[in-house]
Design a protein around this nucleic acid. Structure first.
Lengths: 153, 153
DNA sequence: GTAGGTGCAAAGATTTTGCAGTGCT
DNA sequence: AGCACTGCAAAATCTTTGCACCTAC
């Protein structure tokens, strides 16, 4: 039973990394949360193992990203959000009103992506694509996105 | 000649803000640079007026954004990039290889945006839309985007 | 047993804020 | 002349790094 590693563990092994409970918790957090910032992931992990440190979360995410288990996207502000890789590729929709994150299947953007490829030779990293805007609910509530004032486009 | 304000000045006046050389420089920097981070904007401004402080740049950008002269988008990492508002609305293309920023007219994404509107009731803030990927040059050079390794999609 | 991994604390980087002096209106 | 704006410096965030101890293999 020496090498009875779970599939996610395999990925670590394959890259010469060790399997540790901290890394497992971090990966589970990402999987469970769907989308999470380092802070949110830490909170989740600490609910199982209070001693885990923020820097460990950062380092674990770095490793998990390198071995291809998770990715991150930059949504609003400066908050990087991590999510699992192996589920269906999707585009992130960030609501400027409620900060909520929605996802849509990548195919919806296919035409656009093809156009970029054709016209610019630009190869899109679909999973990192971020779309800012206002969700249905916030539009109905008449929110304008940013608190300040006029926000053209 | 009391109120001989330039068009950009008008916008400030209209919102009760004063016209100052610092704000003018910051706005010129944004216009001239096309895309710029606060740091880059500071550098540009200081080339004209060395005494200007970083915090002044931040405050000026905040004001200029409020009156609708500039906007910002979050491109790679945590670097907010500011650009002029009144030119044609465009989508940002960020190359993961060379960090360069390209723009494409918003119409290219129209189909996608319409689909989001139709299916999700999501109103897209086109100017803030960010697309990560690899530009033609970096693809040719065989870059993979992130230095680390595998990067799916 | 050994090298990689973790926790802790300090260092960095980036953005924000308080305050007194300055300059736009 | 009044009050918003600026410069400076300190505070607040968020992320990274150095080091001694611990643990997976």
């Amino acid at each position: 039973m020496a090498t009875a590693a779970a599939p996610w563990g395999e990925a670590l092994r394959a890259h010469g990394y060790r399997i540790t409970p901290q890394r497992q918790f971090v990966f589970e957090a990402v999987t469970d949360l769907g989308h999470g910032t380092p802070e949110e992931i830490l909170a989740w992990v600490q609910s199982r193992s209070p001693g885990v440190n923020l820097s460990t979360v950062y380092r674990a995410l770095e490793v998990l990203e390198e071995v291809g288990l998770v990715t991150h996207a930059h949504l609003g502000h400066g908050a990087p959000t991590y999510h699992e890789v192996d589920d269906e590729v999707h585009v992130h929709l960030v609501c400027a009103g409620c900060q909520e994150i929605d996802s849509v299947p990548a195919q919806m953007a296919q035409g656009f992506i093809d156009a970029l490829e054709r016209d610019r030779g630009f190869s899109t990293d679909i999973g990192h694509m971020t779309v800012q805007g206002l969700c249905r609910r916030c539009r109905a509530a008449g929110k304008s996105g940013r608190p300040r004032g006029v926000d053209r486009t």
